[in-house]
């Protein structure tokens, strides 16, 4: 999985996700989820990291199960005495909704954990012709991300020094962070332009992202498999 072309992988995962959205099929959902897990393990993703990432998803999935179980479309009132009986359809409804959370997360993580981020942007630029001004804009922003986290820590400390307690996601933190963001993006764009970056001319690529037959095979297999299973 790690060696596949990022854009081909993106398409090979994105289209099956859309197909899954169109059908109610808890068993298909769960089997695709299991395949994703197997592929993730084969791609040498650390098991501990996987468990950590799947913990919130399993919680969300359980949450959806109970929502689907209690609030079926047939029942008019939100909580209806009939729902408390173990009717097959209520359980099925819950399963459909909760397996969906699992399978989307499985597919999402399969892409996220096996793809090199920089290669993804390069591939978007080279294979899907994303304008270079956007490709390099994203790369620039991506690379200041560690500074941003550092700045976030500093901003919280600065507030605390003034006796203001801020929760980790407080809106108070937003303004100072945005001030930094605007200043940095100004400085970054000036720096890029002063180094000769020009989005409107054609450029050559130092890192060429290639598309081989295996890369093309992946979306064909995943989309084909999905279509065969569904229809």
């Amino acid at each position: 999985m790690n060696a596949l072309n990022p854009v081909c992988k993106l398409i090979g995962i994105f289209v099956p996700t859309l197909i899954l959205a169109a059908v109610h099929h808890p068993i298909l959902n769960i089997s695709v989820f299991v395949i994703c897990l197997l592929l993730l393990l084969m791609s040498r993703v650390r098991v501990k990291l996987l468990l950590l990432l799947f913990l919130p998803i399993i919680l969300a999935s359980i949450g959806m199960f109970f929502t689907g179980y209690h609030f079926q479309v047939e029942s008019g009132a939100p909580v209806n005495a009939d729902n408390w009986q173990m009717t097959g359809s209520a359980v099925w409804n819950g399963l459909t909704l909760s397996s969906r959370v699992l399978v989307y997360a499985g597919l999402g993580l399969l892409f996220a954990l096996t793809t090199n981020k920089i290669d993804l942007i390069r591939s978007l630029q080279q294979q899907l012709h994303l304008p270079s001004i956007f490709a390099y804009g994203i790369l620039a922003a991506w690379n200041i991300f560690p500074n941003l986290m550092e700045e976030y820590r500093k901003t919280r400390l600065a507030f605390r020094a003034r006796g203001v307690y801020t929760s980790p996601v407080s809106p108070t933190l937003l303004k100072p962070m945005l001030v930094k963001a605007v200043l940095w993006s100004n400085a970054l764009s000036i720096a890029m332009e002063s180094k000769g970056f020009n989005g409107s001319v054609k450029r050559t690529e130092f890192y060429v992202i290639r598309v081989g037959w295996k890369d093309l095979l992946f979306p064909v297999v995943t989309i084909g498999g999905m279509v065969v299973f569904v229809f």
């Binding site: 001004i133 804009g137 963001a181 605007v182 993006s185 764009s189 989005g199």
Partner: peptide, 25 residues
Amino acid sequence: MVEQKWKLRDVVLMAVLGTVFAAVY
């Protein structure tokens, strides 16, 4: 063209805002 319309400054600002909010999200 898109590249004519968008200045690098705008694009980098949008990308940086995107990064800030990706973290917020």
